[in-house]
């Protein structure tokens, strides 16, 4: 007994080191899987509060760009509105009209793009209706998927994250693939597993596919920069240049698919019956 106690006293620093290293490695390994550590993330009171305070200062630097983006979006929406025939006379009864998506606006207070797994922090949380697995877009294109939420803040898995896999398709032909990021340039992502029969051309637009319940169909992603067939010649691997400047994200829209539960229950039932 005495010897065991002596052992612990003699090697107490080593044991403490091993313990602390073990804890941090557990956190690290957790962070490499899709839904991450519950404890160490920036959607908490302290880090969210500090990022929020910092953003109050730095927001002024990007004000011009964000204003320009808003004007551009207004312009696009206005053009769409005025060019739709009978847009005014066609009345919609909002009481009975089935609304499929709900939009929540949020401000980005922290944005990474240099790591292998990047995250954004939003100043909007469960109080505003945010929850896990909601899609996040800007006026130009997709940004990511909500991961953790606290009362006032939320973290977003950016599309620049090695765990992010988003269903996407060619706008003109509906051939779909998976959008992934392999590190490096924050403006280029990869679209993989596109059928070799797909009519791929440089400059074509890539949009979200309607296969997931996270993003609505047809949200812009980017344009094809280059493409090549994989060695087996069955699938294309396409480099996509993003519409969004991922290094400068200001206000974002969080999309909630109101039919999601219904779709998932249905899919679950179908899967169970088989």
């Amino acid at each position: 007994m005495q010897q065991i106690v002596n052992f612990f006293i003699k090697y107490r620093n080593f044991l403490l080191y091993v313990l602390l290293l073990f804890i941090s490695l557990v956190f690290t390994i957790q962070s490499h899987s899709y839904h991450r550590s519950k404890f160490v993330n920036s959607a908490n009171f302290l880090s969210g509060g500090i990022y929020s305070g910092l953003d109050n200062i730095t927001a002024y630097f990007d004000l011009k760009v964000h204003n320009a983006q808003l004007v551009e979006e207004n312009n696009r929406l206005r053009t769409k509105l005025l060019n739709t025939r009978d847009s005014i006379s066609q009345k919609i009864d909002t009481a009975t009209f089935h609304k499929r998506f709900r939009f929540i606006t949020a401000k980005t207070i922290n944005n990474n793009y240099t790591f292998k797994d990047n995250f954004l922090t939003l100043r909007a949380g469960s109080k505003d209706g945010l929850k896990q697995d909601l899609g996040v877009i800007t006026s130009k294109g997709i940004v990511g998927i909500v991961d953790r939420t606290s009362t006032n803040y939320a973290t977003v898995i950016s599309i620049l994250n090695s765990n992010s896999q988003i269903n996407a398709k060619l706008k003109k032909s509906n051939h779909f693939g998976i959008l992934v990021w392999r590190g490096g340039d924050p403006n280029i992502v990869d679209l993989i597993d596109v059928q070799s029969k797909a009519p791929v051309q440089k400059g074509d637009t890539i949009v979200t596919g309607g296969k997931s319940t996270i993003f609505p169909e047809g949200i812009g992603i980017g344009t094809i920069k280059s493409f090549e067939l994989d060695p087996s010649e069955n699938f294309y691997s396409i480099k996509v240049e993003l519409f969004n400047d991922m290094t400068n994200i200001g206000y974002v829209y969080v999309i909630e698919n109101l039919d999601r539960e219904e779709i998932q229950t249905l899919e679950q039932q179908t899967a169970d019956e088989q």
Partner: peptide, 24 residues
């Protein structure tokens, strides 16, 4: 120290692990 930086970087425990090691 490492864990605080990790919290802000959303990086799990990477900073904590490296910090503890160099401290050791």
């Amino acid at each position: 120290l490492g864990l605080t930086v990790d919290m802000f970087c959303n990086s799990g425990g990477m900073h904590a692990a490296s910090c503890v090691t160099i401290a050791y």
